[in-house]
């Protein structure tokens, strides 16, 4: 986490997350980072009072996405472990917020990326972490 910046040069260190399916995954996570981040910046700056909880959760989601994207781009064993944890956190997040938003809709006057299990985003918020976990496991150094 301390050293190395997110550079896309081909320099495989350990499991290669930056090529093959990893490329697609990184791109999708990049898209979601930009989407979730711009959405939460807009919501937090203009309409924070309307639905503080939903907007804070949107911002958290954006941070998690950004974190995973950087880890995937950096590659390497350390980054792989970190990304595994982050993907698991994302999955827990989308399941928790999804269930929560269905049980108690009043807590969410406005939608978050994770509301209704990511229905508004064609369930991608739910599909991405599962795919990410599978890919990260496969890219790992054998059965850990």
């Amino acid at each position: 986490m301390a050293e190395g910046t997110a550079e896309r040069t081909a320099k495989p260190a350990g499991p290669d997350l930056r090529h093959g399916p990893g490329r697609l995954l990184v791109t999708l996570y990049g898209v979601f980072t930009v989407g979730a981040a711009s959405r939460s910046v807009y919501q937090l700056t203009t309409r924070f009072d309307e639905a503080p909880l939903a907007y804070v959760l949107s911002a958290v989601a954006a941070l998690v996405y950004a974190f995973i994207t950087v880890s995937l781009v950096r590659g390497g064993e350390g980054a792989r472990r970190v990304a595994l944890v982050a993907c698991a956190a994302e999955l827990v997040g989308v399941l928790t917020v999804g269930t929560w938003s269905l049980i108690d809709p009043s807590a969410f006057p406005d939608a978050t990326v994770w509301s209704d299990y990511g229905l508004g985003y064609v369930f991608f918020p739910l599909i991405l972490p599962v795919t990410g976990l599978l890919w990260l496991r496969r890219a790992g150094p054998g059965p850990a």
């Binding site: 090529h19 093959g20 399916p21 490329r23 697609l24 791109t27 999708l28 898209v31």
Partner: peptide, 12 residues
């Protein structure tokens, strides 16, 4: 990414 995954990325 000159493989099928490049095509998949463009499709996405």
């Amino acid at each position: 990414e000159r493989s099928r995954w490049g095509s998949a990325t463009v499709a996405a």
